[in-house]
Amino acid sequence: MTIKQLSVFLENKPGQLAGIMKTLAEADVNIVTLSLANAPEFGIVRMIADDHVKGADALAKAGYAVRETEVVAVTVPDRPGGMADLTAKLDRAGVDIEYSYAYSLGHGEKAILVFRFDDNAKAEAALAAEQT
């Protein structure tokens, strides 16, 4: 399923992430998961929040460069070959993965991963058969 993600620009200096976290905490927004991406001179923090609208609002008001983007949450069977099946499907559909990070590792049977594809809709269609 497609879900909203918050992406925030991070300067490459200490205390940047702390400021973002503090802003979200004060807005009473819970972060479900996050991932940090870095280029040589800056970074991007990507988050799934319980209330992305409130989160985006709070961050923008605090002066952060924030963007709401769509990502796809995919359930992956927690067994050898689970990820292989999924990526084989994507490969056949000709979909590129831009990035991915864990949403929830579950408790034994399933893991949920967040994906950003070059074409989210196409990827979702290709994966539809895999969803359980």
Binding site: S7, A37, A39, F42, I44, V66
Partner: peptide, 18 residues
């Protein structure tokens, strides 16, 4: 300063801007 409007989720786009 990168403008809030120009910020994208895409590292390559930001590198391109730089």
């Amino acid at each position: 300063e990168v403008t809030a409007e120009a910020f994208s989720d895409d590292i390559r786009a930001l590198e391109g801007l730089r």
